[in-house]
């Protein structure tokens, strides 16, 4: 990832960390793009944050389903070359009862 692109993308992360919402669409991705193969299978979902809808990955191998309540967290995103910036971004995690 290019440093300027990384810097721009990270500006909004703080606005979402801790936000909770509900999964309204989901799939489990079992064949991923390069750079994400180390975490497959992973959930890819649309979350409704009280009206604002956002597409996000689930954390780790946690499989999310429609109706699950989730919270936004910051996690490592993609594997890059060793000398590159570590890419952190938003993912969602299931809220346990």
């Amino acid at each position: 990832m290019k440093p300027a692109q990384y810097w721009r993308n990270k500006q909004k992360i703080k606005d979402y960390i801790g936000k909770t919402g509900q999964v309204i669409a989901s799939t489990t991705i079992r064949t991923s793009s390069p750079g994400l193969t180390h975490i497959t299978p992973y959930s890819y979902v649309i979350v409704d944050f009280s009206g604002e809808k956002k597409e996000l990955m689930g954390v780790g191998n946690e499989l999310l389903e429609i109706g699950d309540e989730v919270v936004c967290v910051m996690r490592k995103m993609e594997l890059g070359a060793p000398q590159e910036l570590i890419d952190y971004g938003l993912k969602v995690k299931k809220i346990m009862e």
Binding site: N9, A25, S26, T27, I29, T31, S32, S33, L36, Y42, Y44, V45, I46, K54, E55, L56, M57, M77, G89
Partner: peptide, 14 residues
């Protein structure tokens, strides 16, 4: 920028 982590089949799977 807003669909990071998705794949083409992943979007149609949803």
């Amino acid at each position: 920028s807003t669909e990071f982590g998705s794949t083409f089949p992943g979007l149609y799977a949803m």
